[in-house]
Amino acid sequence: MTNLAATSAGAISARGPKPRTLTASRIGVYAFLIIAALFFLLPLWVMVVTSLKTLPEIRQGHLFNWPELLTFEPWLKAWDTACTGRDCNGLKPGFWNSVKITALSVPVSIVVAMINGYALSFWKYRGSEFLFGVLIFGAFVPYQVVIYPLIIGLSKVGLFATLPGIVIVHTIFGMPILTLLYRNFFASLPIELFKAGRVDWAGFWGIFFRIMLPMSVPITIVAVILQTTGIWNDFLFGTVFAGRENMPMTVQLNNIVTTTTGVREYNVNMAATILTAAVPLVVYFISGKWFVRGIAAGAVKG
């Protein structure tokens, strides 16, 4: 380092990268993030440890401590025998109901929205934009404003409190966002793609199945994630439209926890809560970046 000699004695010449010192601001940044992370993680921790404790241990307090006596009893009970009122079948009927509802509603709502988005992008007709405007308006409408007439309507055709009924309801209320998602996606495709399809004399369905459907795989992944978590987590529609036979897991969870008869079994409640949250959490952690993309899809365009 020739320059060292050139500089005045004693002073170290500045050369190369600036020496990195762990500055106060850097520590502050990490401190903030870690404290925030603790705030977000704490409830999960509490849920897990509570669900693994015995009731006597819970009654001693020490909310945050790891259980002294590990027990999986509450999990079994939450799944199998926890009571809501007189029924003591645990969460499992609710789980299977949610599976049924989700498994039916997700594909139905996505297929419907996909066709909507496709038609709105390539096959507009008189009034189609107006319909879309109404749909977007529907995204903002508080559900309470339409729920009651919908109950009456579904009762009239005998679908109220049935599985097809709740599937229809989820399809209706998922339609605004999903249609928008697909419309924007199809509108971003090059128009030449569509024109090429027209040249080959493929009609509405021909172009849809042969060209558009294969192209919309990525956006459909986003839609599936969105709908699966959304429908699984639904509470209001489940309460109102599903009926006793098809009561989804969230509703049953709430009934188990808020049931007032007998002793409150906090460990069973927390095990039930985790069980209910498990499916969307698994979807979230598996899908990772896609989940964020689904959320961000709306954000980027602003």
């Binding site: 320059n3 500089t7 010449s13 500045a14 050369r15 190369g16 990268p17 600036k18 020496p19």
Partner: peptide, 18 residues
């Protein structure tokens, strides 16, 4: 940008770390 090596002098002053 933080340089990987070398020096920068501006108006006779070593500003590499400024």
């Amino acid at each position: 940008l933080d340089v990987s090596d070398g020096e920068i002098h501006i108006s006779g002053r070593n500003v590499t770390w400024d």
